[in-house]
Simulated assay, not measured.
Amino acid sequence: MVASIALWSCKKEESTDPTTTLDQEVTNSSVETASEAQEEADKLESDINEIEKTFSSTINARTTGDTTVTFKRCASVSITKNTTASTRTVAIDYGTGCTDSITSGGTLVTITRKGKVTIVYTGKWNALNTVSTTAFAGYSSTITKNGQTLSRTISGTRKVTNLSSITFNSNGLTGTPKFRYENNLTIELPAIDNDRPAATVTYISDKTKTWSKGFGSFSPFDDEFTVTGTFSGTNRKGVAYSAEIQEAVTHKTECWKSSIFMPVSGKVKYTTARGDATVDYGDGTCDRKVTVVINGNTYEYDAGQ
């Protein structure tokens, strides 16, 4: 996945009522924080997906000793199958710093990862009902874009259950991948501005994600995902929130070419001590505009302005 920098400078229609304005600020912080947390989870998922596709036969082999391969130019990946069980272990070691880069929308984006990520599979990675559990050891990612640098550190666990059967044929991978993602993460976020100071936040989610378009193709920009489920955590302001996806959220990778990584449609209900807020991501257009309804008040903002 092309990585983004979540520099949210929200252009919104503010209420003159100070209570309503505070409600908006709490909601915005929850939406933004959840977006940053999910972005890190998605970046990690993209790396793991790439490893699963690239080294699928080795991961799925009936018997294997320790196999070591190179990933992202400098990361070391060891693949081990327990000789007495179906368990497989993939360990990605980025060491003290492994840098990768890509050009997005004419802009060079570099990502430096550090630390180690270990994934344990209960069976073949592409088999129905296989569960993979991911753990972290000193893992962080640093993104540099347009001279701006943001670093995030992740700890905790990530559990993925395969709800589909992915097959191989002469045309490559086929099927409609569907996975359940259960995250229980702690993420250290860097300061962006005075309104968004450095913070350690939590992110707990239980989502189901369907790869509805583009699976198996060689283009990274023709994919479409639909997501349902719930998530919760604490935002940068230290306020607890919970959220439920009321209408399936859709992501399109064609938007990445314009450095847009937000959902293009769907509705999410956020709940905090300030009340409930519904966030509408739009009609499928690649943009950063959302509409928020909170306590009977409606406002809009553009997360890219």
Rank of each mutant, 00 (worst) to 15 (best):
I5R: 11
S9G: 15
K11W: 14
S15T: 04
S15L: 07
S15H: 08
T16E: 15
T20P: 03
D23R: 11
Q24S: 12
T27R: 06
S29G: 06
S29K: 10
S29D: 10
V31T: 13
A37Q: 05
E39N: 15
E40K: 14
A41R: 01
D42A: 15
D42R: 14
D47Y: 01
N49Q: 01
E50W: 00
E52W: 00
K53D: 00
T54W: 00
T54C: 00
S56G: 06
I59V: 04
N60I: 00
R62H: 10
T64P: 13
F71L: 02
K72M: 08
A75Y: 02
S76Y: 10
V77S: 07
N82S: 12
T83I: 11
S86D: 10
T87A: 08
A91G: 06
A91N: 11
D93R: 04
Y94K: 01
G97E: 08
C98H: 05
C98N: 02
C98T: 03
I102A: 05
I102L: 07
T103D: 12
G106F: 01
L108M: 09
L108C: 08
V109P: 05
I111P: 05
T112M: 05
R113K: 08
V117G: 03
V117E: 08
I119K: 07
Y121F: 04
G123Y: 01
G123K: 02
G123H: 08
N126L: 02
V131L: 02
S132M: 10
T133H: 05
A137P: 04
Y139M: 11
T142Q: 14
N146G: 09
S151V: 13
S155D: 10
S155K: 07
S155H: 04
G156T: 06
T161Q: 14
N162Y: 01
L163R: 02
S164W: 02
F168C: 06
G175Y: 00
G175A: 03
T176S: 01
P177D: 00
K178D: 04
K178M: 04
F179G: 11
R180Q: 11
R180L: 09
N183T: 09
N184P: 04
L185P: 00
N194F: 13
R196I: 14
P197M: 14
A198T: 08
V201H: 07
T202F: 05
D206V: 03
D206E: 12
D206N: 09
T208K: 01
W211E: 03
S212C: 00
F215C: 02
P220W: 01
P220I: 04
D223N: 05
T228C: 07
G229P: 09
K237T: 12
K237F: 12
K237S: 14
A240F: 09
S242W: 03
E247W: 11
V249Q: 11
T250K: 12
H251I: 15
T253E: 08
K257A: 12
S259D: 15
I260N: 12
M262Q: 15
P263T: 12
P263E: 09
G266R: 12
V268E: 12
K269H: 10
T272N: 08
D276S: 08
V279Q: 13
D280H: 10
D280W: 11
Y281H: 13
G282D: 12
D283I: 07
D283A: 13
T285Y: 11
T285K: 10
K289M: 14
T291C: 13
I294P: 03
N295F: 08
D302S: 07
A303Y: 11
